[in-house]
Design a protein around this nucleic acid. Sequence first.
DNA 1: CAGGCGTTGCTGGA
DNA 2: TCCAGCAACGCCTG
Length: 479
Amino acid sequence: MAAGSGSLMWFRKGLRIHDNPALEYASKGSSFMYPVFVIDPHYMEPDPSAFSPGSTRAGINRIRFLLESLVDLDLNLKKLGSRLLVLKGEPSQVLTHCLKEWNVKKLCFEYDTEPYYQALDRSVKDYASSAGIEVFSPVSHTLFNPADIIEKNGGSPPRSYQSFLKLAGEPSWVSSPLSIRVSSLPPVGDVGSCEVSQVPTMEELGYVDNDQDELTPFRGGESEALKRMTESLSNKDWVANFEKPKGDPSAYLKPATTVLSPYLKFGCLSSRYFYQCLKGVYKNVKRHTLPPVSLGGQLLWRDFFYTVAFGTPNFAQMKGNGICKQIPWNDDEQLLAAWRDAKTGYPWIDAIMVQLRKWGWMHHLARHCVACFLTRGDLFVHWEKGRDVFERLLIDSDWAINNGNWLWLSCSSFFYQYNRIYSPISFGKKYDPKGNYIRHFLPILKDMPDEYIYEPWTAPLSIQTKAKCIIGRDYPKPG
DNA sequence: CAGGCGTTGCTGGA
DNA sequence: TCCAGCAACGCCTG
C-alpha cells in the first residue's frame, strides 16, 4: 500500500486538533496518516425499548452532540489537508482489519482510563505489538496522569480533594507551551477494501422517529468549544470571582456556569489548554477565587474523580467497592420511574428532570437536588439506578465524574453529612421565588400563582381550576 | 487515637 | 448578608 511510513490516528475522545499529542505524533514523519473514528454499536445502536429516544447507553442529545463534534473534526482536518474516516463495527475488529489493510507502522490514540477502553485498548495493543506496529498512547484527557498521583500516594488514590491537591501540585506542563496550532497534516492514504464513510446523520444511524419536542441548545465540536471558552474567559471579573456553590441552578437562559463540561467530556476542548488560558486570566487580575470553589478548582475536581475512579476496583457499583458505604437501598421501580419521568409531584424536582431529558444538561446544584431526592433525601432508591439515568441522558456524561458525584450525593463515599438534605421546596425558591424555571420546563404549571408554584398541592381547588391545572389529574400529587 | 475539618442544608434571628 | 444551632459522618493529620 503506502510506500514509506503510514500511521493510524484513532479518535475516541480527544475530538480536537489543538493540544492533541497523539495526533501530533501520528503526523510526525509519516507520509500517510489515517484519521479514524469507529462507530461502536455498543454505544450507538438505536434501542427502541429504552425509556427515551436513543441507544441503550446514550440519549439522542449526546449522540447528536457526538456527530456534530465529528463533523467539526472532519472540517478541521480538511483545512489541514486530511479528513476523518468513519468506520462501523466492534472497534478492535475494525482496527485490526485497518491496520492489516493499510500496512501502517504507527498506531496513535489518547490514553483512556475508563474500564471499557482499558479492556478494548489492551486487545488492540496486543494485536499491534504482535504485528510489530508501534503504539503511542499519551495521557492528554486530564491535567495529570491518574497513575502518577496514585503512585505518589503509595498505590492507592487520595480520597479527599485536599489531599489530592497536595499530591498533584502544579501540572508539569503548565509553564511550557502546549502544541495548539497545527499547520498541516500528512495526506490520507489509499483506504483499500475498508468500508469508510462520511460522518453519518442521525437518520443514517437509524434514529428515525425522534418524537422529542425540544433538543439541547448546545452544539458539539472543537470550534464551538473554543468559542465558548473564549467567551467565558473574556469576562475576567466573572472568572476571577467564580464560586461554584454560589451559582444559580435555576438560570437557564444564561446558565450560571461555562457549560464547557460536554466539550471536556468528548475532548473537543483540552482541559490542559483550558487550565493554561485560565492561568493567563488569573495572572492579570488583582485577586481571584481558589479551589475548591474557583473555576480552576472545577478542573481539579475533574482530575480528582478521574484519579479515584481509575484507582478503585468496582468504582461504578456499591458491591465490591472498597470506598463505598454499603447501604440497604430499596429497589422500587415505581419510585424510580416517577423520578425519571418527572412525575414526583415536586415541581422543582420534576422541572430539573425535564431539563435533563430535553437539554441533557442541568446546573450542578440542580443535579445535587434530584440526586439527593432519589437517594438519601426522599425515595431511598439505589444511587446506581439514578446514575444509569444520568449516564444515558447527560450530554456531558462522564464515567468517572458521574459515578463519583452519585457516590458523593448518596453519602456513599467522599461526603457523609447525611443530615444535610436539599429541600425539594425551599432550595429552588431561594433562587427563583417566582418559579420561572419551573414554568419553562413544566408548562402545565405556567399559570399557577407564585405562592403555590413550589407546592401546587396546597393550592385551593378554585386556584387550581383557574390555573388550568388540577393536582392529581393534570399534574401529580407527591407520593 | 483524638481532634480538626469538609466545594455548595435548613431554619430562624440579628 | 451573616451567624448559631441543629446533629454528627469519617478521612486526614499530628
